[in-house]
Amino acid sequence: MITEEMEARLRELVATQRLAVLATYNGEHPYCSLVAFAATPDLGQLLFVTSRHTRKFANLQCHGEVALLIDDRSGDETDLRRAMAATAVGRAEEVPPDQAAEARAVYLARHPQLADFVDAPTCALVRVQVRTYHVVTRFQQVMVYEVAR
């Protein structure tokens, strides 16, 4: 069954990949950045950490709507059919202080080597509240998964 099979592949993709391409917008043009992400178990939130002085952080302060691309490309010609890509669409915001401990734990479980970065006073832990994942397999097969709230 495509639905269940692709959902399982989506979960595996999110669990195995460490980096995602974050797309933000400054009101004039889009901007892409590579971020180290972690997902909550229900896939409802994608977390990443950024310095508050980056272009992406400035962008999402003004425009919270973002997209993240997570994929498993290998770089050869078979990628067209074999690689999988999931675009998460949602709203980004800095994690509120009362929820920071829990989010920090989720993030560091995935990226323990980034502990100093997470705790640096100049960095922000950002969460993207994902509304939908648009999952592309076999180059042209697309399923949409909505996160139940």
């Binding site: 269940e4 959902e7 229900d42 896939l43 097969q141 697309v142 399923m143 949409v144 909505e146 139940a148």
Partner: peptide
């Protein structure tokens, strides 16, 4: 039908 955590719909089929 089995229940899954996410609500799915097809967007493009090959």
């Amino acid at each position: 039908k089995t229940q899954t955590g996410l609500i799915s719909r097809a967007r493009q089929l090959i």
